[in-house]
Design a protein around this nucleic acid. Structure first.
Lengths: 139, 139
DNA sequence: CCCAATTGGTTGCAGTTTGCAACTCTTCGG
DNA sequence: CCGAAGAGTTGCAAACTGCAACCAATTGGG
């Protein structure tokens, strides 16, 4: 079932490591709720979207919510889905730094006051920044 | 060329959003250098591995390095590849929280002193934690 | 209350990607 | 030199994607 059963990175990639799942979660965080919301924002093929919504729901990242005024299906992020926020922010920041030419325009993430969100950096318990050289994986 | 030309998340996913690229980068951060290093650690099919190494090199995440004592090809992360560290750490932490059953064992990330790396949280300039509700995307 | 448009999918099919296994070519160790 | 290991490449079968057409259930307008 899992690509590498003991590695959390591998399991996470198994769940959201395809071309569309993270973009669906991104749009859900930005307010998308209905099938057509997602379809129009991402431009994904409808059958693939249906499949991804099913899988994300099965994995517990999305859930069906009862729309107050009607029976039309709505999707909302679960706590696990919301918890991908940090992943999407770091991915966005990496993209801003390395996937755009200098001067090429792109969207940015701002907080409630309109201030740019600072780079997210993993830190040790004492607050010092960490890199792959100063960390290791323990089984 | 890009799924969504103005969204850094989409561009990042275009580069590393498949089942193997991030695991290759993960293993590179953990010391993998040669074709067979990657092949044995990930278990990926050899033709796919060759393709991914080519693409990651073309995108500037990996580079060929001249091995001091020999002509065998070696791969090393570039600065852009190293910069995925924060992404991999957040992904790992998400996986630890949401892709394992309670009590199911998994590897953990520790710093040079053996201390667990604390959860990575996006924060505003004033240090307060951010969520998808307290941030927005500005074009 | 009824008809048409909208929503939320499913189905069929063609093209692409992936995975496995076998094969090649180079290099290293003795 | 000779054999083994490293680094890929090639050929194919199976799985996954995308497009377009189709279908059933809601909903909105008159």
């Amino acid at each position: 079932m899992w690509t590498d059963p003991t590695c959390p990175v591998a399991r996470a990639v198994d769940v959201i490591g395809d071309r569309w799942s993270l973009l669906i979660v991104r749009d859900a965080m930005d307010g998308a709720r209905s099938f057509t919301d997602f379809q129009q924002r991402t431009g994904i093929a409808r059958n693939i979207l249906a499949d991804r919504l099913r899988k994300l729901t099965a994995h517990g990242l999305l859930a069906h919510v009862e729309a107050p005024s009607g029976k039309r299906r709505q999707y909302a992020l679960t706590a696990a889905g919301e918890d991908l926020f940090a992943v999407i922010v770091t991915l966005r920041q990496w993209g801003e730094r390395h996937a755009f030419e200098a001067g090429e325009p792109h969207s940015v993430l701002v907080d409630a006051h309109g201030a740019l969100v600072p780079p997210v950096v993993p830190t040790a318990p004492d607050g010092s920044p960490l890199t792959s050289d100063t960390t290791s994986v323990r089984k």
